[in-house]
């Protein structure tokens, strides 16, 4: 850690002090862990009865299908969000004010609205009572996630196009390409490369947000988890198992995003956009 801005390389006295801190920290951590295990055991949380359901094939099967539902909801939402993002991202870059302004308003509106109230709108306006071809809750979750993540991706997309060197579009115009050609042949393919890691990171957000579907009884891990703990009264264990499944999926996505960042973008900073037009307007974060 000699290359830290915070402190110089430690001398002999400091190293002794650090060793002392390490010993204290380890002692505290071990004591806390031992206490936690004893506490959980005392409360009967470590008994076989509490964990047994997670070894039964029937339950595992149900959890597996819930996981597939969760993943398919997130996947469908991201695919739709990419389409939404490209349409409104290009819309925000348009030369025509009558395209630019509505795109701006749509993106800003859905970026600043909580996903949960979007879900409530979708479900209670159109999804309830057999709406959305009988899959009301499922489609409501997908559409709500599409609107929110699509609005974020529109911004990512716009930032991606703007991050390209100006010479790219100038050269394209110079050889006689039209506006649409410049966008589709020259700018889009390069922007996609820059935005891919940000897109995968957005998948993590979408996957986590599928959990909110529980509020409108959409299928998925949180809904099934709730059913299991209501039936088996093993709230802690179910919460741990469901959380672990989410964490594993998200870590896999994060690894993919990091790998893509390294492969496609190199050492340049990952693309980041603010949460609103106001916060994203500053040049420092668009660097």
């Amino acid at each position: 850690m000699s290359s830290s801005v915070l402190f110089d390389s430690p001398g002999p006295k400091t190293r002794v002090r650090h060793r002392l801190y390490t010993v204290i920290a380890v002692a505290v951590v071990v004591a806390a862990a031992v206490w936690l295990v004893m506490f959980l055991d005392d409360k009967g949380q470590l008994t076989d009865a509490k964990w047994h359901v997670f070894t039964l094939t029937d339950y595992l099967n149900v959890i597996w299908h819930a996981l597939l539902d969760t993943l398919s909801m997130a996947g469908a939402a991201i695919v739709l969000a990419v389409i939404f993002g490209v349409v409104f991202g290009v819309g925000k870059l348009s030369d025509h004010a009558f395209v630019r302004w509505p795109s701006f308003l749509v993106v800003e509106f859905f970026r600043a609205t909580p996903v949960l109230i979007l879900m409530l709108l979708m479900f209670f306006q159109w999804g309830i009572g057999g709406g959305f071809w009988g899959h009301g809750p499922y489609v409501s979750v997908v559409l709500a996630l599409m609107l929110y993540n699509g609005a974020v991706l529109a911004e990512v997309f716009r930032a991606g196009v703007l991050s390209l060197p100006k010479g790219q579009s100038e050269a394209a115009y110079a050889i006689g390409m039209r506006k649409t050609q410049v966008m589709t042949i020259v700018l889009l393919p390069q922007a996609v490369k820059v935005m891919l890691p940000a897109l995968i990171s957005q998948c993590v957000v979408a996957l986590k947000d599928t959990s909110l579907g529980m509020y409108i009884v959409a299928p998925g891990l949180t809904y099934i988890g709730r059913q299991i703990y209501i039936e088996q009264r093993n709230q802690l264990q179910t919460a741990l198992v469901i959380s672990a499944l989410y964490i594993i999926c998200n870590l896999i996505l994060t690894v993919i995003a990091t790998w893509m960042q390294r492969r496609l973008v190199g050492t340049k900073k990952p693309l980041e956009v603010g949460m609103t037009a106001l916060a994203g307007a500053n040049p420092t974060s668009a660097k």
């Binding site: 993590v204 986590k208 947000d209 599928t210 959990s211 909110l212 529980m214 949180t222 988890g225 709230q235 802690l236 919460a239 469901i242 959380s243 989410y246 964490i247 998200n250 870590l251 994060t254």
Partner: peptide, 11 residues
């Protein structure tokens, strides 16, 4: 960071 907020609330 990788746990949904809803699960944190559940805990």
């Amino acid at each position: 960071r990788n746990t949904p907020l809803l699960m944190v609330f559940t805990f």
